[in-house]
Design a protein around this nucleic acid. Structure first.
Lengths: 193, 193, 193, 193
DNA sequence: GATGAATGAGGTTTCATTCAT
DNA sequence: AATGAATGAAACCTCATTCAT
């Protein structure tokens, strides 16, 4: 399997760095190859084309969010706590990897529709897990029974995304992690029973 | 003043149509010129370069949001009502102009960092006005006195934006306007005193 | 009409020279542009792509053969004389333009199947005219009534083509024109009544 | 000797199939290796480079024509009969091996000048044998004493080649073998004393 | 002898911008 | 003011060949 070979991850990581440091439109394949210390042609032994690199970057990295969230859902805390853990996790992953934060919040959004559609497929998986938490909270009475799941999902994800994007645009100069409990509290007060 | 001449608006409107119908990356200057019924070179009598067209599209169209919001702030309703009016206005403008909705929610976000930074300057004006409503609500006791204005702003704008973007991505097939009161209610329950 | 503008012919002629002097696979668009004294991009105002240049080279130049042959057919000489004139014309055009001879006999034959199929369409027109001469000769009794037109066409064209190609491969070092009457005589003796 | 080892022939035969089925420009070394069931690198144990494969394909396969023709020349028939046998042999070999016919008549002609020059060296051997027949016919009075050997060679080979190429281009859908006596008769009538 | 992963040079085409008319 | 023909820089990808195993 190609994605288990060391060069696969090597190229993905190189792509994140190159995109973060040069911007999406200045992230030429040759730069990524150089950063990964492989020849240009080697890229094409592991990826079909440039688009495939970009989608794989998102898929591989987003996988971490999804995996973490699956763990969070499994545990036995309340839905409220799960929501906090989710926000906390989302913030932590991006606060820990500055390059990745730039890539997901700013650069990858410049990609064309084809790529964005595939990125959305990955995102959808994440949103479905978020819905699980929301539904569970509804059913166990933690959340307001009139809550519109779809709007609540928009609110939770929109707030998280907007908060992180603003933080990235401000050059990540304040502590994102500290905002997690406040964001949770703000969101919860709007959903609680 | 260039922006008062008829061809200026003509080109801006052509750009919105071309970007909405062809996508950001397929919106060549020559296509915009054709749609505006002017020669390619004429574009450069009214705009410094392509970047200038795109920023102007956003500035000119965003102006409507800002103007409307200024009117809303002036009137004598409660902060809660102002928030509803703001959401309602935001939804209405985009629900009325499908091309514009596509351009602002999807296509213009593919622009490079430079353009997006300038677009953000324009957006900031809008967010400052939103802050006015939030501060007013805090001061007159409508909103929770512990409310973090910055986070509340992220939540309000993030929720609105995510809701509209999802609606555009779903081909605008449901009635966006109907969601306005629900979104307001959801947001308010998180902020109220 | 694009093909009436001076730059169109300028580029076609440049292509013939570049292909003849560098070989088919070393005839880059940039070289053709340089030879034609235009910018690389200008090529694409007159031709859809590189393939289009190559096909146009053949079509434009082959047009001369076809036009000349149409004149020959119209005149009132015998079929035998027409055949001589055809051979003579074919030899003369290529003996006069050494670059063109190299391009048609050697270089253009390296093109891929798509291009060769389009080239064949043009050639077919020429062969149809040759058939006219052969049929006429059959009907007026100049040629053997048992003559198989298809085979005769193969023989006439194959002999002409092989003779010219050998001449080109030998660096055009002998006088091709002098061979015309001998080739005619040889071919005719095989077809005469 | 490398050319006696089984893998040598295996690769040559694979090359003929790959070129015939994919076309000259789509006949990558890796495809030939795959078809021959050897690794890419193995090719280079038997051939200096890709050019060497292509020339060897022609040399090996052309060898059959030359060998057969040598036999034909040795026998005691008339020059006219030898000519028929030669045409018959030429047609038969290609009519029997459809892949080979495509490769020699269409695909290999797309190769660059270097390769074509080397192919011509091989062809020359064949043409020299043809000259033997023609000269013998001249000397024994079967052919016209004014016959120009060089032109006659062009005519014989050009007619054969054009006839076969047309047959291949028409997807080999009629019986090439049946044409042999007619082609001979046509050619002979032009050369006979 | 055999393998196949890795290499890296090289070319077509697009499109924002200019400037002579 | 308006035109639009001309410019030319810039990058993705292929594939023949090598060489460590």
């Amino acid at each position: 399997m190609k994605r288990d070979k060391p060069k696969y991850k090597q190229i993905i990581d190189a792509a994140v760095i190159v995109i973060a440091e040069n911007g999406y439109h200045q992230a030429q394949v040759s730069k990524i190859a150089k950063q990964a210390s492989v020849a240009d042609g080697t890229i094409y032994l592991y990826f079909k084309n440039k688009e495939d690199i970009l989608i794989s970057v998102f898929t591989e990295k987003m996988g971490v969010f999804v995996e973490n969230l699956k763990q969070i859902i499994k545990d036995e805390s309340t839905s409220c706590e799960k929501l906090l853990k989710m926000i906390d996790n989302h913030f932590r992953v991006l606060a820990t990897d500055h390059h990745l934060a730039i890539v997901t919040q700013l650069e990858l959004r410049q990609s064309n529709k084809d790529i964005r559609l595939k990125i959305n497929d990955v995102l959808k998986e994440y949103l479905v897990l978020l819905d699980h938490i929301l539904i569970e909270g509804l059913e166990n009475g933690e959340f307001n029974k009139d809550l519109d799941i779809r709007l609540a999902r928009h609110m939770v994800f929109g707030t998280i995304d907007e908060t992180i994007t603003t933080w990235v645009m401000n050059d990540q100069k304040y502590d994102l992690m500290k905002l997690a409990p406040k964001v949770q509290k703000l969101l919860l007060s709007g959903m609680r029973a």
